[in-house]
Amino acid sequence: MLMEILVSLLILVGGAFALLGSVGLARLPDFFMRLHGPTKATTLGVGSVVLAALVHGGLGEEGGGLRELAITLFLFITAPVTAHLLSKAALAERRRQERTQKQS
């Protein structure tokens, strides 16, 4: 019973944060501002959903449990790398647009 409440709470919090990151992505006016939503909120949201799966799976299945943690760890390592590469790409794209504007 207690576990069920914990799992429910975790998936609700996770879903809310995943939605929040996407709202930020859709709503904010500038690319670099949009970058903030998905890198933080969505990563934590999905992390907490995966954690819920861990708590839930740890009850019924044998052996299961730690495997879900691998996904969370992977997401937390890759999210900053993705954000960093995207901002570098956006800066390059912006420089290129400025150059073509000057030429025309």
Binding site: F32, L35, H36, T39, K40, T43, F76, I77, A79, P80, V81, A83, H84, S87, K88, L91
Partner: peptide, 15 residues
């Protein structure tokens, strides 16, 4: 440090 900054309050490391 860049990764930590990206995951903490209101900041993303760009370069």
């Amino acid at each position: 440090l860049g990764s930590i900054v990206s995951l903490t309050p209101g900041t993303v490391s760009a370069e």
